[in-house]
Design a binder for these strands. Sequence first.
DNA 1: AAAGTGTTTGACCTTTCGGTCAATGGCGTT
DNA 2: AACGCCATTGACCGAAAGGTCAAACACTTT
Lengths: 211, 211
Amino acid sequence: MTTTDNTKQSNRDKKQQQLLDAAEKLFSQTGYDGASMSMIAKEASVPKANVLYYFKNKDSLYEAVLDRIVAQWNLGLENITPDDDPAVVLYNYIKSKIKLAIEQPMQSRLFASEIIRGAPYLQGYLRNSARPWIREKSALFQAWIDAGKMNAIDPQHLLFAIWSTTQYYADFEAEVLLVQNKLEYENSDVEKITQSIAQLILTGVGLAIPE
Amino acid sequence: MTTTDNTKQSNRDKKQQQLLDAAEKLFSQTGYDGASMSMIAKEASVPKANVLYYFKNKDSLYEAVLDRIVAQWNLGLENITPDDDPAVVLYNYIKSKIKLAIEQPMQSRLFASEIIRGAPYLQGYLRNSARPWIREKSALFQAWIDAGKMNAIDPQHLLFAIWSTTQYYADFEAEVLLVQNKLEYENSDVEKITQSIAQLILTGVGLAIPE
DNA sequence: AAAGTGTTTGACCTTTCGGTCAATGGCGTT
DNA sequence: AACGCCATTGACCGAAAGGTCAAACACTTT
């Protein structure tokens, strides 16, 4: 088409992204029911009716926020084969998860709220994306175990353990910071957390922390 | 006092507990904002005005629910000394936490929702109860480490790891069950989860799973 | 029987919710 | 200048929210 069409399209996209930003922030702070359309509009500095022009109702806005998170949230561990070194792979995975949890806690918290509520909007994602992914990576872990590269453990529970320990620092940030009497995480915290978790998980399956 | 007074008091208490049961269920399902007073009243099979006779407003009802959870939720690890065997202590602790997560998931989920929202009602508890408890237990762990009874690790992160891995099966029950294509946990799951987590944590700090 | 005390409840209040709609505005095309 | 098309927005709607209140009720105590 013409250039004007493209500009219009990108303007529309840009505005939609801004609305999604505001919605993501508020949904993650107070949950689906706690965040009102007028609060979201206020956060985005537009009238409420304008939000409803871009998203036909609250449900579809919430769904769009979740869809964006899930799309960005590449589950990781791509292009890994049984020939790779499990210690290196798991260490890097844990490291990236911790980094994500501390730098993008809102996504993790919104995801958690949604699952706690019984995942009404994420059933499709869990069934069609997460489940096959988990099955695939479980097979990878099992191959490592069968090859004697790491100790036997249920691969699914190993994945759950990695997710839970890393996401904890996003979802329970308020608790962790309050207990440690801090206002926010420091760079040194990221390092310390990574080391502690990597030690537990890796040593836990008989691997040494790489390098 | 007289017997009638005690009966009245216990009637009042009993009714209050029933209302707290209903409130706990709904708050844990849909969060503070998602659960309405009329839904809670309906769940308890009483008119809404009756709920507000026992709890002066929604806030105080929510607070009472949290207070009851926190009171029941003994943090565990009581009466442990540096002379005890860390492997036995940690194993039993993990085992009891898993049991609790699977048998009483609502409490864990409500607690999690509250922390995700920034713990507006639990700041006092975290500051005055959880923090001293964590400091005390951290010292205990450190004593074990100093005595060469277990590998060096940051005791606080060890505690966070135990909490996160165990509570995950309550808070993310919907995800775990959906991924495993189950409707509910079975007895064998409790055993398997306990073994997997105990293996990671205990081996992770250089301990063997007891007996 | 009357008075007193705590409990129950329907009716009602204000505010806010999600959502609709018609009027207005901006802007390129003819 | 007139048209068409999407974007913007204030006014408005019914429903549901949290909360109040006074009348009725149950049950002792006198």
